[in-house]
Simulated scan of single mutants.
Amino acid sequence: MFLSHGLLESKPVPLADLPPDLRLKVIGAAGAGFPSPAQDWEETAIDLVELLRLDRAASFVFRVSGQSMVDAGLFDSDVVIVDRDAKAVNGRIVIAVVDGGFVIRQLSMRSGVPVLEARNSQMRYEPVVADEHVEVWGVVRASVRNLKV
């Protein structure tokens, strides 16, 4: 699903029906630091459904659009995996329904009041008080980024 300028363009769809053979072959370990004795470890495949826990009825996928969360490491076109059954607590990134549309924000407590805040120090976004007019829809559990080269 897609988030456009903070708003979802269509309804989210559960991922429980993904094909069971969605697997990637692992070629080998790619060192990103000092050589490790674990480099000889090899696995033949990664099951993306299992790795990202996409086979749960409460798991959904959204595509981020916009720059409001770049300081939290979420960029335009990133894909986020959202759990509807996870508890939204202070500091977690959430998907919320604000003014009838979906937004992605960080849940923060300010003087005991839950607030949804953007994370981009280069732009100004008004915080939104998470009151009875705002529904915290789910908690972001993981993100996937295409490193277009």
Score class of each variant (00 low, 15 high):
residue 118 A to Q: 03
residue 116 L to M: 10
residue 117 E to S: 07
residue 21 D to Y: 05
residue 144 V to K: 01
residue 13 V to D: 12
residue 89 V to K: 02
residue 30 A to F: 06
residue 75 F to G: 01
residue 109 M to G: 01
residue 102 F to P: 00
residue 94 V to D: 00
residue 96 A to S: 02
residue 74 L to I: 15
residue 120 N to K: 08
residue 97 V to N: 01
residue 33 G to L: 09
residue 37 P to E: 04
residue 84 R to C: 02
residue 52 L to V: 02
residue 55 D to P: 05
residue 140 V to W: 12
residue 73 G to E: 04
residue 6 G to P: 05
residue 149 V to I: 13
residue 129 V to A: 10
residue 143 S to A: 04
residue 131 D to H: 03
residue 115 V to M: 15
residue 25 K to S: 07
residue 54 L to I: 07
residue 70 V to L: 14
residue 63 R to L: 09
residue 99 D to Y: 00
residue 32 A to M: 13
residue 60 F to S: 03
residue 140 V to A: 15
residue 125 Y to N: 05
residue 111 S to R: 15
residue 61 V to L: 15
residue 79 V to N: 00
residue 18 L to R: 09
residue 95 I to C: 10
residue 7 L to V: 05
residue 148 K to C: 10
residue 70 V to K: 11
residue 40 D to K: 08
residue 117 E to M: 10
residue 4 S to G: 10
residue 51 L to K: 11
residue 129 V to S: 07
residue 147 L to M: 14
residue 4 S to V: 03
residue 90 N to Q: 00
residue 131 D to E: 03
residue 69 M to T: 08
residue 128 V to S: 06
residue 129 V to C: 11
residue 39 Q to Y: 05
residue 124 R to F: 08
residue 85 D to T: 11
residue 38 A to K: 11
residue 46 I to G: 07
residue 125 Y to T: 08
residue 123 M to C: 11
residue 62 F to E: 12
residue 136 V to I: 15
residue 81 I to M: 03
residue 141 R to P: 03
residue 13 V to A: 13
residue 96 A to R: 01
residue 16 A to C: 03
residue 42 E to I: 02
residue 114 P to V: 07
residue 114 P to I: 06
residue 138 G to Q: 04
residue 31 G to Q: 06
residue 87 K to S: 12
residue 5 H to E: 12
residue 66 G to Q: 11
residue 23 R to A: 13
residue 113 V to G: 12
residue 85 D to K: 12
residue 125 Y to C: 08
residue 106 Q to P: 07
residue 109 M to R: 07
residue 130 A to H: 04
residue 125 Y to I: 09
residue 71 D to M: 07
residue 73 G to K: 05
residue 106 Q to L: 02
residue 61 V to N: 05
residue 19 P to L: 15
residue 77 S to Q: 12
residue 118 A to G: 04
residue 60 F to Y: 15
residue 23 R to G: 09
residue 2 F to P: 05
residue 147 L to T: 05
residue 70 V to H: 10
residue 132 E to K: 15
residue 15 L to S: 14
residue 19 P to Q: 14
residue 111 S to W: 05
residue 102 F to Y: 01
residue 38 A to E: 12
residue 67 Q to K: 08
residue 53 R to N: 05
residue 86 A to Q: 02
residue 25 K to E: 09
residue 33 G to V: 10
residue 132 E to C: 13
residue 139 V to I: 00
residue 148 K to W: 09
residue 12 P to T: 03
residue 91 G to D: 09
residue 38 A to Q: 12
residue 128 V to Q: 06
residue 115 V to W: 13
residue 79 V to Q: 03
residue 26 V to D: 05
